[in-house]
Structures are given as C-alpha cells and as structure tokens.
Amino acid sequence: MTTPRTAAVRPDQLAIRPLDPDADAALVHGWVTHPKAAFWLMQGLSADEVRGEYAAIADHPHHDAFIGLYEDSPAFLMERYDPARVELAGLYEAHPGDVGMHFLCAPADTPLHGFTRAVIFAVMEYLFADPATVRVVVEPDVRNTAVHALNEAVGFEVVRKIAKPEKEAYLSVCTRDAFEAARKAHAGNEKKKESGR
C-alpha cells in the first residue's frame, strides 16, 4: 500500500518517470490487481505476467508507461499511447496530434482528499507539455462513473459510446483549450478554498 504523507495535496510534489518493467513489476502488480483497480482489467495476473505486459509496452513503438511520484514515492501509474494504433485503432476518426491516456492511483491506507484529481491534472499537464499534443483521447468503461467525473473536471467531452472487445466505453476527447479552461477554473476554486479557511 502507498500512503501519501501530507495532510493536503501539494501538486508541486507530483512527478512522472518512465516505468521500469523489471524494477517496478512487483509494485505495479499490487496496484493493478487490487480490487479498486477492477477497470484496469489485470485482475488475477501474476507479478511475472504484469512484468511481461509492461515489458511489451516498453518495447512498443506507440505505447509508453510511467510511474507517478508523490513526495518522491511511487503513487500512480500512467500510460500514454497513439490511439490510432493502440486501443482505438479503427474505432474512431483519428486526428493528427491525438494522444491516448490511462491513469491509475495506487491504493492508499489513508486516502488523501483531492489526490486523484491532482493526479489527473498532473497527467494532463504532462501530456500537453509536448507541443505536438493537440487532443487527449480516452475510452473509459461506461460503468466507471468516478473516472467520468474526473475526466469532465479536466475538460473531456464524451463523443459517443463505442464497443470494444473487453468493454463498452465512452470515447471522450479533451482539447488543449478545454484543458486550459478547466485548469484555470480549478485554480480559482482552490484559491477560494484557501481564502475560506
């Protein structure tokens, strides 16, 4: 289990590094097979199978995996992919500059209020830091109501429902402008909370 150490989320303490399939396999195995990670679709895999999955991603030319850190400790998992070639190939009209994304927060002994929202903002900032990224595209399970709310908070709009082999999903996109607007609104809300203390 991973427990963030501070009483309030400090976004400046979030960082992202490449996932090492060998060094990180045991850690990531505990995250992706946890009951709260059911939508990650890796329940029942062994640590070696998880290592194999992430070794395949490391070798893939259009898919990357990362470990997110909070206060220098592993705290979340992120994947970046080309949706025209991975996950959504043939299922949507791809645009130049589209980037796909998955993220998963580590299970925590004591959940930190606002942590998951801080993580998705950090992930989106990381993706849009690349000037080649025009839109972020996601395909969450239609039943995953928690992630739908998070996606909406960072500027995603649902395009339509799509059928994938493993699930029914909401194809959703977030433009750079939509994310910037969401980030400004989020920052304003945080300032209001601070002034109300």
Score class of each variant (00 low, 15 high):
residue 59 D to A: 15
residue 178 A to M: 05
residue 190 E to G: 02
residue 91 L to I: 00
residue 167 K to Q: 11
residue 135 R to H: 14
residue 30 G to N: 08
residue 9 V to E: 10
residue 143 R to V: 05
residue 108 A to V: 04
residue 113 H to T: 14
residue 5 R to W: 02
residue 177 D to H: 13
residue 103 F to S: 08
residue 142 V to D: 00
residue 126 Y to S: 13
residue 159 V to M: 08
residue 21 P to M: 06
residue 17 R to P: 07
residue 10 R to C: 10
residue 106 A to W: 05
residue 25 A to H: 05
residue 12 D to V: 05
residue 100 G to V: 05
residue 100 G to W: 01
residue 123 V to M: 00
residue 1 M to W: 10
residue 136 V to Y: 00
residue 189 N to H: 14
residue 28 V to A: 04
residue 73 S to K: 14
residue 117 R to H: 11
residue 154 V to S: 06
residue 197 R to Y: 06
residue 142 V to C: 08
residue 166 E to Q: 12
residue 99 V to I: 13
residue 32 V to E: 07
residue 154 V to P: 07
residue 104 L to H: 07
residue 107 P to I: 03
residue 154 V to C: 09
residue 41 L to D: 12
residue 1 M to I: 11
residue 125 E to N: 12
residue 77 L to P: 02
residue 188 G to M: 07
residue 65 A to Y: 07
residue 73 S to R: 15
residue 189 N to V: 04
residue 88 L to K: 03
residue 116 T to I: 09
residue 115 F to K: 08
residue 142 V to I: 15
residue 5 R to N: 11
residue 37 A to F: 00
residue 78 M to F: 06
residue 194 E to H: 10
residue 89 A to S: 15
residue 116 T to H: 00
residue 129 A to T: 10
residue 88 L to V: 01
residue 159 V to N: 03
residue 69 L to M: 15
residue 101 M to C: 15
residue 18 P to W: 11
residue 191 K to N: 09
residue 29 H to F: 06
residue 141 D to C: 07
residue 144 N to D: 08
residue 104 L to Q: 07
residue 190 E to I: 09
residue 18 P to T: 12
residue 117 R to Q: 14
residue 133 T to L: 02
residue 101 M to L: 15
residue 189 N to Y: 08
residue 78 M to W: 04
residue 85 R to T: 15
residue 62 H to R: 12
residue 70 Y to C: 07
residue 134 V to F: 08
residue 176 R to K: 13
residue 34 H to E: 04
residue 17 R to I: 14
residue 71 E to I: 01
residue 9 V to C: 12
residue 46 S to V: 04
residue 153 A to M: 06
residue 13 Q to L: 15
residue 154 V to T: 10
residue 31 W to D: 05
residue 54 Y to A: 03
residue 113 H to E: 15
residue 67 I to W: 02
residue 89 A to L: 09
residue 155 G to S: 08
residue 174 C to M: 05
residue 167 K to R: 14
residue 105 C to L: 08
residue 145 T to H: 13
residue 185 A to I: 03
residue 62 H to T: 12
residue 164 K to P: 00
residue 189 N to W: 10
residue 185 A to P: 01
residue 86 V to H: 00
residue 122 A to L: 08
residue 120 I to W: 05
residue 161 K to I: 13
